[in-house]
Amino acid sequence: MNIGIDAGGTLIKVAYMKNDLLEFEKFPIADLEQVASWINGLDNIKICTTGGKATFLKSLLSQKAEQIVEFEATSSGVRYLLATCGITEESYILTNVGTGTSIHHINKSEQQRVGGTGVGGGTMMGLSQLLTGITDYDSIVPLAAKGIRDRIDLKVSQIYKGTVPPIPGDLTASNFGNVDPMVSRTDLEKEELLASVIGMVGETVATVSVLAAGQYGVSSVVFIGSSFIRNEFLKEVVQSYTRLRGANPIFLENGEYSGAIGALLHVSK
């Protein structure tokens, strides 16, 4: 059996073939030693690792493992998923929203990292904890989806009230810029605060992605990453903001496993 492993800053993603079907597993990075023990118990396998914790993972394995650069693995996995979905984009921006956000330009033959931002899933989790005390991802996401951002975020239309704004009024003029000085944090609902955090992350990610798309003359942005897992609210923010700014957003099913898929493809050659 061939196994591809993407050991990142937050999660360990695993891809392998079973009965000719592509299977996935994911584990928190805290379980790295347990994952290594599981792999060490398997026979007749070939392994390829990628990601920031790949070297450490390899040190825990009793079997020899190959290792490839994360960006190469991810772009290879994305090409595979696009082809599987019948999407024929040849040149596009790839935005990987994990703990942070990494942005790449991909065409038929190569990938190039063009930038990124420290705003990503780590920002979402850290600010959510600081503002609400909630640390669990599966609690943060559904609460945020119920929140209304009007008391916290300032829109362009609010600044240009009574006149036609020079840019779309639905754009956020200032994240967290509409908080009344007389309002304390305890006066705001947790849902409002969490919605504004995820809104800021999504809008930042979409904005830098669209700017990169304009720089490279492409119209589509492919979004992947663990921050989108069961997070329809973040997807909606990114999708609407990307379209509002004139680009075409594409979300791939199982996109968070792109690095693991790319590692699997490498070891399966």
Score class of each variant (00 low, 15 high):
R243V: 15
G217S: 11
E192D: 11
I45P: 11
V197W: 01
V183I: 08
L252R: 08
L264C: 05
T242E: 09
E236Q: 15
K146A: 02
T132M: 05
S226A: 14
G259K: 00
L81S: 11
I224G: 06
Q129F: 11
V210Y: 01
K155F: 11
I68N: 09
I159L: 11
L94Q: 08
R185Q: 11
M182I: 10
G8T: 00
R230L: 08
V35W: 05
M1N: 10
I87E: 15
L130D: 04
G115I: 06
P249N: 06
G202K: 07
A65W: 07
N178L: 12
P142E: 01
Q67P: 00
S62Y: 14
D153E: 02
L154T: 05
G121T: 07
L211K: 12
Y257C: 07
N19L: 03
L127Y: 08
F251W: 15
E110N: 07
F233E: 02
R149G: 02
G118D: 02
S76T: 08
L154P: 01
T10W: 02
R113S: 04
D150I: 07
A206S: 15
P28D: 02
G121C: 09
E203K: 07
R151C: 00
A260H: 07
D187N: 14
A145H: 05
L193G: 04
N175Y: 12
A206C: 11
G217N: 12
T50M: 11
L264R: 02
I167T: 10
E33S: 13
T204Y: 05
L154E: 01
S109E: 15
A260I: 06
T74Y: 02
Y137D: 00
A144R: 03
S227R: 00
R79A: 15
L264Y: 12
S258T: 07
T207Q: 12
P142G: 03
T123S: 11
E236R: 14
G147K: 05
G162T: 08
Q112K: 14
T117W: 02
K161E: 14
E72P: 00
Q158L: 04
I103M: 01
F27T: 02
D138A: 05
E236D: 12
I261M: 03
N2T: 03
D136C: 05
I152M: 04
Q63V: 15
V237I: 12
G115K: 06
I140C: 06
G121M: 04
K155H: 10
L61V: 13
T74I: 13
L127W: 01
K190C: 07
A195K: 03
E203C: 10
L131P: 05
I103H: 01
C48E: 13
K190N: 13
I148A: 03
P168I: 09
Q158G: 07
I250A: 06
S109W: 07
G246F: 14
D153H: 03
S102M: 04
K18V: 11
G259C: 08
L194R: 04
G225K: 06
T123A: 06
G116N: 04
I45K: 14
N40Q: 14
P165W: 09
L82F: 05
K108R: 13
G255L: 03
D20T: 11
V156E: 02
L244N: 14
L154A: 00
Q63C: 12
